[in-house]
Amino acid sequence: MSRIQLVRVALAAIGLAAFAGVTPAAARDYPWCAQGGEYDYPGECAYGTYEQCQASVSGRLLFCDRNPRFAYGLDRPPQPRPHRRARAVAPY
């Protein structure tokens, strides 16, 4: 094997290893929600502290309130897992 081929194989292996470690982002609710305006109930629940929420809603005609899932102990229903499709491998 030539040096260029070895470099290509090494780069492909690194790329495959990096891709294999990627997981999909999980939606997560935080204890504070921005409510009002364009947001339906419970609002945009993306704030870990009241201060973060206040900084975000400043000047937007919104207000901050507790996330009802945290305040009342409501759990989210489990999300169904997406159907996995098998890919056809093209022969080389």
Rank of each mutant, 00 (worst) to 15 (best):
M1D: 10
S2C: 07
S2R: 09
R3I: 07
R3K: 04
I4N: 06
Q5E: 15
L6K: 14
L6R: 15
V7Y: 02
R8P: 02
R8G: 06
V9N: 08
V9S: 13
A10V: 13
A10F: 12
A10R: 02
A10K: 03
L11P: 03
L11H: 04
A12C: 12
A13P: 01
A13E: 05
I14D: 05
L16G: 13
A18R: 01
A18Q: 11
A18C: 10
F19Y: 07
F19E: 10
F19M: 15
A20T: 06
A20C: 06
G21I: 06
G21S: 12
G21E: 08
V22Q: 11
V22K: 03
V22P: 00
T23W: 01
T23A: 13
A25F: 10
A25G: 10
A25I: 07
A26P: 00
A26G: 05
A26F: 04
A27W: 01
R28M: 01
R28I: 06
P31Q: 07
W32K: 02
C33I: 04
A34H: 07
A34L: 09
A34G: 05
A34M: 08
G36T: 12
G36N: 09
G36P: 08
G37C: 07
G37L: 05
Y39K: 04
Y39P: 05
Y39A: 04
Y39E: 03
P42D: 05
P42T: 03
P42M: 08
G43W: 01
E44A: 15
E44F: 09
E44I: 00
C45Q: 11
C45W: 12
A46C: 07
A46Y: 03
A46N: 15
G48T: 04
G48K: 11
T49Q: 02
Y50M: 14
Y50G: 00
Q52T: 14
Q52F: 01
Q52W: 08
Q52S: 15
C53Y: 10
C53G: 06
C53I: 11
C53Q: 05
Q54E: 15
Q54R: 11
Q54V: 09
A55P: 00
S56A: 15
S56D: 12
V57W: 02
S58N: 08
S58I: 00
S58Y: 05
S58V: 01
G59F: 02
L61K: 05
L62I: 09
C64G: 04
D65V: 02
D65R: 06
R66I: 09
N67V: 08
N67G: 01
N67R: 10
N67P: 05
R69V: 00
R69H: 11
F70P: 06
A71L: 12
G73P: 04
G73R: 07
G73F: 01
L74W: 14
D75E: 12
R76P: 00
R76I: 09
P77F: 07
P77N: 10
P77A: 13
P77Y: 09
P78W: 00
P78F: 00
P78M: 11
P80R: 13
P80W: 12
P80T: 11
R81S: 14
R81Y: 03
H83Y: 07
H83K: 12
R84M: 13
R84T: 08
R87M: 13
R87F: 02
R87Y: 07
A88M: 08
V89R: 14
V89K: 09
V89P: 04
V89Y: 11
V89W: 09
A90Q: 12
P91A: 13
P91W: 04
P91F: 11
Y92P: 15
Y92C: 06
Y92M: 13
